[in-house]
Amino acid sequence: MKRTIPLIIASVTGFVLVGTFFIPYTRDWGDEVLEWFNILAAIAFILGGGNLMKLSLQKISYKRPGWGYAAVTIIAFIATLVIGLGKFGVAPVKEYPTYSLAGPYDEQGSGFWWIFEYVYYPLAATMFSLLAFFIASAAFRAFRAKNVEATILLSTAFIVLLGRTYAGVFLTSWLPDDNVLRLDNMTEWIMNNMNTAGMRAITIGIALGIMSTSLKVLLGVDRSYIGTDDG
């Protein structure tokens, strides 16, 4: 029961969705499965939040290193959750002024909007912008023309880096507009031909991998997702 039923569920669900592609009459079944999938995806967010709470609370109760930051995480989590679920600061809808929960949860001026605009947004955007610094440092320390392959990679990166700014146009402006040796044209040629070729091969390879993995799951050959423990 612990292992057989999950296998059957995975197999039936998968084959229903495969079937909708070939048998139009089964489309409604497929739509129903997708609806359940989408709802479960929302419940997975709750699982994610619950798991974060569980781990953070464990960290605090065992006083592990950094438990103070775990407490900050919990406070930030609960504050966002309460403000978002309570729709604090959301104005009523004009047609239904007595319905306090009828307005959109992310309405401009609401508490949830404030958290996004002034807390989440600067944190997320700045976190990713840090990579600009690290990529420059890595370029200085690790990007070496050690052999033919690395030299090809490096040369292409040079052309693309220059060709995708005005520097490329400026440096080769003495060449006619449609000359392929102009850095901007060369970049476009590389992207449309060499890059397309390489990416197409990679895409085909990944597709084969995904198809075989999917088929193994549907046929019950790959059971790794069930786990091995009895817990």
């Binding site: 200085f140 320390r141 690790a142 040079f158 880096l161």
Partner: peptide, 23 residues
Amino acid sequence: RMGPQLVAHVLIIVLIIIGNIIF
């Protein structure tokens, strides 16, 4: 945003060149 882009790209190219000269 293309202004900062150009200067940063040139900087990264210079850094790669210097890194390779050292190497």
